[in-house]
Design a protein around this nucleic acid. Structure first.
Length: 897
RNA sequence: GCACGCUUAGCUCAGUUGGUAGAGCAGCGCUUUUACACAGCGAAGGUCGGGGGUUCAAAUCCCUCAGCGUGCACCA
């Protein structure tokens, strides 16, 4: 018997070493597993967000899945469990933006898209490494060689492919619809990401002509000119649909139109309401039904627009009291109910209060019919059928009902987000005619760069001569620009031949290695600082130039300037359309070019904000010109895709799709998927949608939804409650095996777990029990060849019954029962009874009984180790290394049934 | 409002196709010449939320009421 058994079990000395042994063995990768394995078992890890660290929910999820994969591996299957990480677009960007503002008082617009993405990349890398190391601590037998990240190259390809296919099938469209707008993060969010928070707030009753209307949001009511009631409401039968009524309202008299619609609730308030279609999805639906017009009241940042009259320009949060005061003064306030409770929609991904807005966004059409196997079907129906037909099984069963309920209420899925971190929408717009092109071949990218620092005087007019040199500040700007361009394979620099442009170009050339062509056609003309028409501005500019005796003060008309710059630009475009080109010029020239490139009117061109020092404007040159207008200059949609769009592809994008890989053939559909029930809609439903449409297949056969780990009092773990428990800390104190057992025993499918440290302690004792049993068994002189007596055979049969039960429990996803049975077998049966009754036998004189019993004990112990391995992999592997039957690692020993 | 769960010992929860009510923790009592004090042994503790029904038999199936929780919708 090895020395180590003389002391109590010390997990701290064992777990790290064991995990290393497993990893080095290569057996996490099913390609390396010994023997011929025909059947496969596959699972993907629900990829943890790169924003966080491991919490108990992860630990539970990992332990659960690891138990399954270890079980199947030991049963001789090609067992694959694919690890990954999720970019969690909105949540991650929100986190980095918060840090940026806290530390540097800057917003993302201050640092720009490239810089923000670079910072997010740095943050996620570190965060990802942390969490994946923590996943290892739990003992997860993941095949790290197949690691996937939602933002890596292969997954990017899958996302683009999926988008293109769905777009071509007409299931992805762009439309103006009411969406959930988050004014804080400046992006849309999906319906499922909204969290309703109960709030007590005053409810106002206002006089609206002959009616009384109620509202909690007086600040949205400026434009309300439709008054809606139920057609069957007897109280208002004197009013007819379409009737016009003059009413006195916040900023004076308006003409209201009566609308009869079933959406009116006769029981609520007076039964009459006015509608704000631009900022309420219900109102928007009513407006659509009756073809009503609507107007935006609140802008993207939550500021009231000119329609609000004297209140315009104020933030909606601050202006409510003043509006109510005004209505009071006009005698329009009937009463105020101070204690009204309602639900406020907030962005659950770290954002603000949702303000519905009508916006042009990308959507997945869930109700649109398409052909599939000769019949018409919609995505909604596809999702429903897949589960209804039993092709995908959801456990526990009652979640199927919840799933159907969700599908039946599902509206088109808004997939575009105005954040920068994520998969950019693969759609390009023609800069001339706005025609769109999906996933085109991009030949080259051109960058317009404004030269470095120009000093402006108080009036915003350029100081000094326009060919003067860069200031030190300007040089810094340019160096930063040059650095970001250095990564972009620049083939040529075309530059104005004036001082600062020359210097700027030289710095960029040094960083990129690109050659410079100078051309005086790109010289400065900026009229923006001057008032009036372009002509007046031009005249004023020339006067100014002459004042400074500038070499640019030649007589030239505006059209002539635009013509020469545009002509030069087009000549370069023809000649170098296959190269990434940087064009360095002055802000004015940039505006002139932008006007021509984007086909803007003078008004629009002059509305472009002042082009900053070192600012880059880029656009793409496509291989094929625009079908509409022949232009080859395009620009990609600035928006990114909802993070769940890429997650929807996860079960097959991790296996190599859209390539036809062997992995895809072997492991799809996945055998099992085990996420928490809280992402049934976000994720499970969308995986079924995506693989159903894209592969005409199911993503997995069984979904095992697990519950949430809560604290002792049953509350969710949250930062604000301060009740968080670090699983790593628990692992260090009690061991990963003890933590795993405490999470798995007694945790039925789909029910929440209340985490109690006392239970973990109990399983630490259990680990020690196992250790001590081993000590006793290995102390006996045993002979592996000894035959069992009749009596001992019975004990072996008893064990085999247990093994069968445990196996059945595994196959029927009742891990909690399997674990409990093993716990009791080891403690109450093997240790308390069998070992005790063995003592006299082993000390006795009956040689045959003695040999048989010693042999039996070794058999029982080593097979119990096998059964326990999926639950307590570390200690069982450690003991196994001292067992006489040991040949290989326990993790690939065969299951004893 | 609609839907889905839950209610079993002081606490946390098991209880698979209906067949004599189970565990852990806490508490109580006993045991330190032991494989194991990171222990063992023992006793106590429950008309399985209330009521009704089906059945030879119900914690389990059905109906109903109550309390708690969750999801979805509404929230003018």
């Amino acid at each position: 018997m090895p020395e180590k058994f003389k002391k109590p079990y010390d997990h701290t000395a064992v777990e790290g070493e064991i995990y290393k042994k497993w990893e080095e063995s290569g057996y996490f990768n099913p390609d390396n597993l010994p023997g011929e394995r025909k059947e496969s078992f596959s699972m993907v890890l629900p990829p943890p967000n790169v924003t966080g660290t491991l919490h108990l929910g992860h630990a539970y999820e990992d332990a659960l899945q690891d138990a399954f994969v270890r079980f199947e591996r030991m049963r001789g299957k090609k067992a694959l469990w694919v690890p990954g990480a999720d970019s969690a677009a909105i949540a991650t960007q929100a986190k980095v933006e918060n840090e940026l503002y806290k530390k540097e008082k800057k917003t993302r617009y201050d640092i720009g898209r490239d810089e923000l993405l670079a910072r997010i990349e740095a943050f996620t890398q570190e965060s990802r490494d942390t969490i994946l190391n923590q996943v290892r601590r739990v003992g997860s037998s993941l095949d790290w060689s197949r690691f996937a990240y939602t933002m890596d190259g292969e997954r990017y390809e899958a996302v683009i492919e999926a988008f293109v296919r769905m777009f071509n099938a007409g299931l992805i469209y762009r439309g103006d619809r009411i969406v959930n707008w988050d004014p804080k993060l400046q992006t849309t969010v999906s319906d499922d990401e909204i969290e309703y928070i109960e709030e007590t707030t005053p409810f106002y009753y206002f006089k609206y002509g002959p009616f009384t209307i109620g509202t909690v949001r007086p600040e949205t009511k400026f434009g309300d000119k439709y008054v809606v009631m139920h057609p069957n409401d007897e109280r208002y039968k004197e009013y007819t649909h379409g009737q016009k009524i003059e009413v006195e309202w916040i900023n004076g008299p308006i003409t209201a139109t009566v609308i009869k619609d079933e959406a009116g609730n006769m029981e609520f308030g007076s039964g009459v309401m006015t509608i704000t279609p631009a900022h309420s999805s219900v109102d928007f639906d009513i407006a659509q039904r009756h073809g009503l017009d609507y107007e935006q009241i609140i802008d993207d940042r939550g500021i009231l627009l000119p329609i609000a009259g004297e209140f315009a320009g104020q933030h909606i949060k601050k202006v409510r009291a003043a509006i109510v005061e005004k209505l009071k003064a006009k005698g329009l306030v009937e009463k105020i109910d101070e204690k009204y409770t309602h639900n406020v929609a907030t962005n659950s991904r770290g954002g603000g209060v949702i303000e519905p807005q009508i916006k042009r966004q990308w959507f997945v059409a869930v109700n649109k019919e398409f052909e599939r196997d000769g019949t018409k079907i919609t995505l909604k129906k596809l999702m429903r059928d897949t589960v209804e037909s039993g092709k995908v099984e959801i456990l526990p069963e009652h979640f199927e009902k919840i799933y159907y309920h969700w599908i039946d209420n599902l509206r088109d899925w808004c997939i575009s987000r105005q954040i920068w971190f994520g998969h950019r929408i693969p759609v390009w717009y023609c800069l001339n005619c706005k025609n769109l092109r999906v996933n085109p071949k991009v030949k080259a990218r051109w960058y317009l760069v404004r030269h470095g620092q120009t000093e402006l005087n108080a009036k915003g007019v350029m100081q000094g001569r326009s060919d003067s040199s860069l200031t030190s500040e300007g040089r810094k700007y340019v160096e930063k620009v040059a650095q970001s361009l250095a990564k972009k394979d620049i083939g040529l620099i075309v530059s104005s031949n004036l001082g600062r442009c020359k210097q700027t170009s030289e710095i960029i050339s040094a960083a990129t290695g690109a050659e410079i062509i100078y051309d005086e056609a790109l010289q400065e003309r900026d009229f923006r600082s001057f008032e009036g028409t372009p002509y007046e501005a031009f005249t004023a500019l020339m006067k100014e130039k002459r004042k400074y005796n500038s070499p640019l003060a030649d007589e030239e008309t505006y059209e002539e300037i635009e013509k020469r710059a545009w002509k030069a630009f087009n000549e370069y475009l023809q000649k170098y359309s296959d190269k990434n080109v940087v064009m360095v010029s002055h802000g004015g020239t940039m505006r002139v070019l932008l006007r021509a490139i984007r086909n803007l009117s003078y008004e629009e061109a002059f509305a472009i904000p002042h082009i900053q020092n070192g600012e880059i404007v880029s656009f793409d040159i496509l291989e094929k010109s625009c079908e509409n207008c022949g232009n080859i200059l395009f620009e990609q949609d600035p928006d990114t895709l909802d993070t769940w769009f890429s997650s929807a592809l996860w079960p097959f994008s991790t296996l190599g799709w859209p390539k036809e890989t062997p992995d895809l053939r072997t492991y799809l559909p996945n055998t099992l998927m085990a996420p928490g029930y809280e992402i049934l809609f976000f994720w499970v439903a969308r995986m079924i949608l995506a693989s159903g449409f894209l592969l005409n297949s199911i993503p997995f056969k069984t979904v095992f939804l697990h519950g949430i780990v809560r604290d002792k009092e049953g509350r969710k773990f949250s930062k604000s409650l301060g009740n968080g428990i670090d699983p790593i800390h628990v692992i260090e104190k009690y061991g990963a095996d003890a933590l795993r057992m405490s999470l798995l025993v007694g945790a039925a499918a789909g029910s929440d777990i209340k985490f109690d440290e006392a239970r973990v302690k109990g399983y630490k004792l259990f680990a020690n029990k196992l250790w001590n049993v081993t000590r006793f068994v290995l102390e006996q002189p045993y002979d592996l060849q000894a035959t069992l007596t009749e009596n001992d055979k019975k004990l072996w049969d008893e064990f085999e019954t247990l093994a069968k039960d445990v196996t059945k429990d595994f196959q029927e996803y009742r891990l909690y029962l399997a674990a409990e049975k093993l716990y009791h077998y080891l403690w109450d049966r093997l240790a308390a009874e069998i070992l005790e009754e063995s003592k006299p036998i082993l000390k006795g004189n009956d040689a045959r009984a003695k040999a048989s019993r010693a042999r039996l004990l070794v058999m029982l112990l080593s097979n119990t180790l096998k059964l326990l391995h999926p639950f307590m992999p570390f200690i069982t592997e450690e003991i196994w290394s001292s067992m006489p039957e040991k040949k290989e690692l326990l993790m690939i020993e065969s299951w004893p049934v």
